[in-house]
Structure formats: C-alpha cells, structure tokens
Design a protein around this nucleic acid. Structure first.
Lengths: 113, 113
DNA sequence: TCGATAGTTCTACTATCGTTGAAATATCGA
DNA sequence: TCGATATTTCAACGATAGTAGAACTATCGA
C-alpha cells in the first residue's frame, strides 16, 4: 500500500459521520446493512449518507451489493487490514513500542480467554 | 478513546505531508528529529511544517522537547497505539477478520524470525 | 403500467484547510 | 549586547470538503 492510498483511506475515516458509519458496518459483520438503515441509525439524510458511502467505498473500506430495492453495505476487512498494516509498517527497526501493544489489542480482542 | 478524539487523530494523519512526517518520526525512534531536519527531509518551508507539527502534536501523535536552539519532535507510541486500538475495537463480536491479520502484521513485524 | 419505495446524482452555498510571506520569539556564540 | 540560527505566530488567499434541496434512476407490488 502506497502513501497516497493510505491518505485516502485515513481521510475517509477522518470524519465523525463516516467513522460512525464504518464502525456500524464493522459491527454489522459480513451480512452488512442497507443504506436506509444506516442513515436512520446515524441520523443522516439519504443523499448526505450516500456521498459518505461513496467516499468510503472509493477508499476501499466498504463493499456494496444490491438486494432488491436496497443496497447493502459492509465493511471491507481487507481494506482495513491493509491500512493498519501500513500504519505499523515503520515500527520495525527494532522498536516494538507501537506494534507490541497493538498485538496485545488484537489478541485480547479476538481471544478473550 | 472517544470517537471525536479518533477523528482528530485520523484527520492529523490524513494528509500527505503530515503522514510522511509521522512516518519519518516513527523511523527516527525515541531520540526524534529537530524540526529543521524534518523540513529538509520532507521538503517543506519551516512555517508550513510548523503548522503541521502543531496539528500532529495537538492530536497527541507526536511529542516535542527543546534542545538548545532546536525543537526535537518524536512519535508518540502511546498516541498511535490508542488510535490503532480504537480502530480494531469493534471487530470483537466473534469476528477476527480484521484483528487476526493485524496480529499477524504486528507479530511478523516485531519478531522477524 | 403506475405509484411507492430505496438510493443516487447534480448544483450551489458555506465553512474549513493548506500554503505563503512577513513579522515575532527564543537561543547561542562572539 | 548584537547578529545569526531555529522555529513559531499571524494575516490573507485560493482550494477543497460537507451539507442541503431538487431531480433522477432502479426496483417492486398491485
């Protein structure tokens, strides 16, 4: 992942509504949520939400599929992983200060016991 | 970490020059780098860089200390860890799709063998 | 086919961001 | 103390982002 792509992804997440949308979709899992439900949940007009969804989608952070009249959005785990990977990429020169706590977070999060 | 703080941190990183500065400082480690050297490395005027450093600093992503005439900036590992923790916080509901790859990244990065 | 539902696209307006040039502040060496 | 070095602060400008209203497109049920 190149720096400009990382900037695009970070920019997409660097907005209160968009970050809220993304987190909602992460919680929703692979099945995702229709745009209308997201709009109701976050409290956004359909057109405003649509522009945010376009931004997140173009940044590679969410995916979409049509299902009858609804368009279902879901978080892109690959997109997020790439970004996180890029962000910890530089801590390697013998400095685990960033990625060690990160590994803890990841582990405690996925492996509660 | 609350959503508005995460947005502030993401916004700080969501800029080509600032992300480059931050990565440079992560590479520089705890000893950090003086502002002038950063400016030369990235190719920014001193006042432009200064405004970016203020933004990164206010977001809690870098620290600074004066050393004679220079001001030395260094990456805040805690600030970065908090942000990364916030970003993976939501993948917990039985869905390791995001944080499992992240754990891999963190591990392979800090533990090359 | 027609009306209703679900989303998107387009246009315009306001607000904020990024950069610059100039001036100010802090520290050091002579 | 004075000039030089290192960096920040201030004011102003152009560019970009976020939101809203209106119109458009796609799909479904009767």
């Amino acid at each position: 992942m190149l720096l400009p792509d990382a900037v695009e992804r970070l920019s997409a997440l660097a907005h209160g509504h968009r970050l809220a949308v993304f987190r909602l979709l992460v919680c929703a899992g692979a099945e995702g949520m229709p745009a209308g439900e997201i709009a109701r949940e976050i409290g956004l007009r359909p057109n405003t939400l649509s522009s945010h969804l376009t931004i997140l989608s173009h940044a590679g952070l969410i995916n979409s599929r049509r299902e009858s009249r609804s368009i279902i959005y879901s978080a892109s785990y690959d997109g997020m992983s790439d970004l996180l990977g890029f962000l910890v990429e530089d801590c390697c020169a013998g400095r685990p200060e960033i990625c060690a706590p990160l590994a803890d977070v990841a582990q405690s999060c996925c492996d509660p016991q």
